[in-house]
Amino acid sequence: MDFPPPQDDAPPMASPLAGVVAAFMPRLAEFAFDPGLVAAVDQHAAAVCDTLAASGAQLPTQRTVDREMLTDYVLGFNDVLAEKGWQEPVGYDFATLRLTAICWLVREKDLLAF
């Protein structure tokens, strides 16, 4: 999954986070039908927050994210997926759950608002 690089004069939707939201926001509607999916996405969201905390960007006890930290994470995660030749499946795999969790974090933390 390739996300376009942000440009100085581009609108906010040109960010990698916007690409994740555009691709995975529809999957959040499935929460209403699958409590197991909610739990899996919640675990992935917590893992992303823990990874960002462990990177030294915040105190280990904090579980907050900001747009810049999450954007950096998405760019790195996208690079790994591209190296592996990952294709989005119909169902859920690790990468799909992680990207859905990122989408959920963006929505919950309102990270695309300016």
Rank of each mutant, 00 (worst) to 15 (best):
M1K: 07
M1F: 02
D2K: 07
A10I: 02
P12D: 00
M13C: 09
M13D: 15
M13F: 07
A14E: 11
S15D: 01
P16D: 04
L17A: 04
G19A: 15
V21N: 00
F24L: 07
P26E: 02
R27T: 05
L28Q: 06
E30T: 05
F33S: 00
D34L: 06
P35Q: 03
L37R: 00
V38S: 00
V41G: 02
D42P: 02
D42Q: 13
Q43K: 05
Q43V: 09
H44Y: 08
A45F: 01
A45V: 05
A46S: 15
V48N: 12
V48M: 03
C49T: 14
C49W: 04
D50K: 12
T51N: 05
T51F: 12
L52K: 03
A53I: 04
A54D: 11
G56M: 01
G56C: 03
A57G: 08
Q58N: 07
Q58G: 08
P60D: 09
R63C: 01
D66T: 03
D66I: 07
D66C: 13
R67F: 12
M69V: 06
M69C: 06
T71W: 03
Y73I: 06
V74S: 06
G76D: 08
G76W: 11
N78C: 13
N78G: 12
N78I: 04
V80H: 01
V80A: 11
L81I: 07
A82Y: 07
E83D: 10
E83V: 09
E83Y: 10
G85S: 03
W86N: 00
W86F: 07
Q87A: 15
E88S: 07
E88A: 13
P89D: 10
V90F: 10
V90Y: 09
G91Q: 05
Y92N: 08
D93W: 13
D93R: 12
A95K: 08
T96G: 10
T96D: 04
T96S: 15
L97E: 00
L97W: 06
A101S: 05
I102L: 06
I102Q: 04
C103H: 01
W104V: 13
W104C: 15
W104A: 13
L105M: 03
L105N: 13
L105E: 07
L105K: 06
V106A: 11
R107Q: 12
E108T: 13
K109T: 09
D110A: 11
L111W: 14
L111I: 07
L112Y: 11
L112N: 10
A113V: 13
F114W: 08
F114V: 14
F114L: 15
